[in-house]
Amino acid sequence: MKLWQYVVRRLIMLIPVVIGVTLITFTISHVIPANPARAWAGQKAPEEVVKRIAEKYHLNDPLYVQYYYYLAGLVKGDWGYSHSEHRPVIACLADYFPATFELTLWAMMIAIPLGIYLGVVSAVKRNKVPDHLSRVFALSGVSMPIFWLGLLLILVFYTYLGIFPASGRGIAPSHTYTGLYILDSILSLDFHALVDDVWHIILPSITLSYATLAVITRMTRSSMLEVLRLDYIKTAKAKGLPDRVVIYRHALRNAMIPTLTVSGLAFAGLLGGAVLTETIFSWPGMGRYAYHAISTLDFPAIMGVTFLMAVIFVIANLIVDILYAYLDPRIKLGE
């Protein structure tokens, strides 16, 4: 099977998954015993207004009719009206998603290479000082609460040292192409914005990356230890290859599969779940938006965020599966 055939097939399989997701989110947001029309209109709004809102959004219709309207809207690009923001959900997502995506991208760019490197060093220098250091580092990463780390970084680097800013995304670049500030500022040659944006993303991306970094380090270490005992490593050494080739070319590629799985899941997870980091650093992303939507019973927004998340997870898994086949020729796609 060719790669593109596999991708197309997987994308088609995405449809039932997505329908399932809409079904679940729709049901969950409608079993909550609260009157959304009242919530959107406000506590003091006259009964008449509440009624009209309920009518306009089909809140009085049977659930399956409401679901039909929801699905139809989803396909047409009308994801509903976000009442907490007073604008369409899709417009909110278009604003917030790039912010989260950019933050996640940076966090993963820190976590993946550094995590793999630390894991490899740890495995190669097993039970020696570098291993102990990296294990302590990783253990503190998985056990340290993310908000605590965020606050600590702010305290040190913003309050005491005043090196990095502590909130927001920085200056918006002069042109918007992708919604990713740093990429856009490079594309529009706006170096003033570039410096400011890079400065702003450093602390939140470190905060966000630490837990993932720790997991990747531990995963890489254990799978490297596994691989380094195997016969083909002995063969590689018997060939007279330098250690660095034995470790990075012969061992690491075989040890990458578990690391890849973790990285893929973490990437998808961070895209939707950076609530704490985004809140601490006032980062205008999806996590903050979702949190806000939940607390104001903004159903269309909740459904929109959940839907997008589900799609991201499925796509992340697809990418991981394709990378598996690239890394290990024994894995055949679609069989």
Binding site: L230, Y232, T235, A238, K239, G240, P242, L327, R330
Partner: peptide, 25 residues
């Protein structure tokens, strides 16, 4: 020693199933 290994002195192992790296031709 590394320069001798694989050039002057080579070695083959018991398990041909696992002695070759599975991810390279």
């Amino acid at each position: 020693k590394r320069k001798i290994r694989g050039k002057e002195i080579s070695m083959i192992f018991q398990e041909p199933m696992t002695a070759l790296n599975p991810v390279y031709t």
